[in-house]
């Protein structure tokens, strides 16, 4: 049954792989934070074409599986002359996929800022850019931090999908250990534990950040 010596033996390898998982999550999330904001802006843009295009992109990306998007990026793009290594394709896929979700989250945050804040910004003659960066976004982002944090954790737990495009992340590593040694129990249990520990730790961090920001 469960063998502690074997678990110890494979732990370093899994810990190395978890670094790939974390790196892909953080890079993908950073991309989604920026991409989501850009999509949210585009959605609100005055020219109807821009706003409709953004709405279309959001709807399309949300309505297709991440796995399909990853396949297109990794196996489809090379036929268009763009070959991405697995990590880059994975990060790009996660980033694009979650951009669409975060765009909607940003939108709800932006819409929660009262109209009076825009008007006060105009009355004080802030430029459009300053109004966004100094007045609106700080207020829009605060209430959506828990939701953003939730998406970070969801994304983290979805990284095993990246194994489908040959990225050797944690779960792929566990599978390789299992098939090489015929011992699956330890490898998958440890992988699950690592997912749990990291998810739980980040949810605690997010909660602390949230309570710190909502004190006022």
């Amino acid at each position: 049954m469960w063998s502690w010596p074997f678990a110890w033996q494979i732990a370093p390898e899994l810990l190395r792989a978890v670094q790939t998982t974390i790196a892909a999550t953080l890079a993908g999330f950073a991309l989604a934070l920026v991409g989501g904001l850009l999509l949210a802006f585009a959605r609100r843009a005055k020219p109807r074409g821009v706003s409709l295009a953004a709405a279309g992109v959001i709807e399309f990306v949300r309505s297709t599986p991440l796995l399909v998007q990853l396949y297109v990026l990794f196996y489809g793009l090379p036929s268009a002359g763009i070959s991405l290594p697995p990590f880059a394709a994975g990060v790009l896929g996660l980033g694009i996929h979650y951009s669409a979700y975060l765009a909607e989250v940003y939108r709800s945050g932006i819409e929660s800022v009262p109209r009076g804040q825009w008007e006060a910004a105009t009355a004080l003659n802030f430029s459009r850019r300053q109004t966004w960066t100094r007045i609106i976004l700080p207020q829009a982002i605060r209430p959506i931090i828990p939701v953003l944090g939730n998406y970070l954790i969801v994304m983290f737990k979805e990284t095993p999908v990246l194994s489908a495009i040959t990225l050797v992340e944690m779960l792929m590593t566990a599978k390789m250990i299992g098939s090489a040694s015929f011992r699956y129990l330890e490898a998958f249990t440890l992988a699950g534990m690592l997912f749990f520990l990291l998810s739980y730790a980040s949810s605690l961090l997010i909660r602390r950040l949230e309570s710190k920001l909502t004190q006022r």
């Binding site: 009262p114 009076g116 804040q117 008007e119 006060a120 009355a123 004080l124 003659n125 700080p138 207020q139």
Partner: peptide, 20 residues
Amino acid sequence: LHKMRGNIGMVFQHFNLFPH
């Protein structure tokens, strides 16, 4: 408009202070 607004100030019914 930006240039012209510099001449004008306004106080609102609902204050509209920046809460953050």
